[in-house]
Write a protein that binds this DNA or RNA. Structure first.
Ligand SMILES: [Mn+2]
Ligand SMILES: [Mn+2]
Ligand SMILES: [Zn+2]
Ligand SMILES: [Zn+2]
Lengths: 137, 137
DNA sequence: TCCTAATTTGTAACGATTACAAATTAGGAA
DNA sequence: TTCCTAATTTGTAATCGTTACAAATTAGGA
């Protein structure tokens, strides 16, 4: 697997400590965290980290396509490492966001009712497997 | 078509002037407006209208199922009169949000990867028909 | 009419995000 | 190495959408 530093360099982004740690966190943890969650996760290890830096870095990495910003259900941005296309499921009970590997070819480069579709986002909501099992037990 | 007052009474909501005007606006204009857009549209006609009342009313009507709240792409809530299931297309050029009548039976009461799906939201993004035509001309 | 509860209003508080300018850092030239 | 400059980070204040809250207004029944 490519190193975080390599990835940053390939995109002409100077691999500062902060950027490396933030990107590394998002590559390691597929939890779709908010900016604040990332900040909280890293501030112990990097006590001088600023929340502004987290926002700046997320913006830079998203503009370069290394990350993807998600407007799921609540009004807060979440971020994930950009991988294969997939859809999202949010559990209303525990709040976890799951990746679902189902894809929909029907939206690829399609025109719908005369509009040119460039992106599609499919967001599911319900009770997750884990919460369903806990309820039974 | 049922009158706005009838609809409110059926749901045990007192048909105050403010509630009637707000619901009427959403039934007439299918633009998926934000709370602020609704406020701006009505404040000339009702100069004492408070933005808090708009928020309160939208919350009440949404809880009763008369309206639907949408977290589309940007981090702001939009509202629409609750009608048949449909999906949304947002034009990145003009910002307009279009209703698309396509539906997806595949999510109805389905279990995906063990999770129980209760809601699904499909959001498309691209260039709308009108903007495509303007670009050509 | 009067009373009371529902509704509306205005203001302040809130949380997420952005703007901005000062401080720090890093990397290359001398 | 030292110095210079530009990039990066930081802290603070501002902004925006939304919510909390308490006072003011309104409406409907006794
Ligand atoms: Mn994901
Ligand atoms: Mn719609
Ligand atoms: Zn769950
Ligand atoms: Zn358009």
């Amino acid at each position: 697997m490519k190193s975080i530093i390599e990835i940053l360099k390939e995109h002409n982004i100077a691999p500062s400590m902060q950027r490396v740690k933030i990107l590394e966190y998002l590559r390691n943890y597929k939890t779709h965290p908010t900016a604040d969650m990332i900040y909280q996760a890293l501030v112990d290890e990097m006590p001088t980290l600023s929340k502004t830096t987290v926002y700046n870095t997320l913006k830079t990495l998203t503009e370069k396509g290394i990350l993807v910003a998600l407007s799921l259900f609540e009004n807060e941005e979440r971020y994930e490492y950009n991988t294969d296309p997939h859809i999202h499921f949010k559990c209303t009970k525990c709040g976890k966001i799951y990746d679902i590997s189902k894809t929909f070819e029907c939206f690829k480069n399609e025109e719908i009712e005369g509009h040119k579709v460039l992106e599609h986002h499919i967001n599911l909501k319900g009770i997750c497997k884990s919460c369903l099992e806990n309820a039974k037990g």
